[in-house]
Nucleic acid binder design. Structure first.
Lengths: 107, 107
DNA sequence: ATAAATATAACGGTAACCGATATATGTTGA
DNA sequence: TCAACATATATCGGTTACCGTTATATTTAT
């Protein structure tokens, strides 16, 4: 089951940073990995991914480098120390929010 | 701890419908109740609330009526059967999303 | 009286995401 | 072989969500 656009809002960067905190990846690999791990809940579109990756590089949270793979030049992304710090903050904030929603709709 | 705008995105309507599924309320009452119940995680602004209430009325999820309270005319909002159905769907979708995020950042 | 709190409302701006489109290369099958 | 398909990166314009700000009116407290 996929969720609506509104649900996703704001958390995509957190999910990408989380993926990249485990290993370097290229764009399509992130989309596939997100989709598989979440059982198709996250269906990130390329029109969302690339601008977001660029902005994370711009913000100093990611670095990128080109590498040959299957004869094709792929752009790999790597998380920076600043990116890891940012990720931790985002996770903390997500947990606060998710708990508050649970209180609201659970009771 | 308040969370950033991005976290809130898309779920405000769900929270309002949930509040109104319990009892009729007027605008300011919703802001106060959300804030108190969530221990200030949700700090909904009037610039967000009123347009959202209008759109929920437009969509048939809410009705509104005027009522005197403390000598002042207040506009109360009431959830419709369609609003309750919509609320249930939104909660289901939220749960799906929250679980998927937990899998992503938990592992 | 008048300042502060309560209450509703609308406008314009920013940010996030997606659909559509463009381009290029590698792989597969008839 | 060469067309169709999958992989891969990229950009643009549009929609939606939320908020800051501003406006207006009434009630309560000093």
């Amino acid at each position: 089951m996929a969720v609506s656009k509104n649900q996703i809002s704001g958390n995509t960067a957190m999910l990408l940073l989380k993926l990249l905190s485990e290993k370097d990846m290229y764009g399509y690999e992130m989309i596939d990995t997100l989709s598989k791990r979440s059982e198709n809940v996250f269906e990130l579109k390329v029109g969302t991914l690339y601008p977001l990756l660029h902005s994370l590089v711009q913000g100093g949270y990611l670095n990128s480098y080109d590498q040959q793979a299957n004869g094709k030049l792929r752009k790999y992304y790597q998380i920076t120390p600043s990116g890891r710090k940012h990720l931790n903050k985002m996770i903390e904030e997500w947990n606060t929010y998710a708990k508050a929603v649970a209180v609201m709709i659970g009771g």
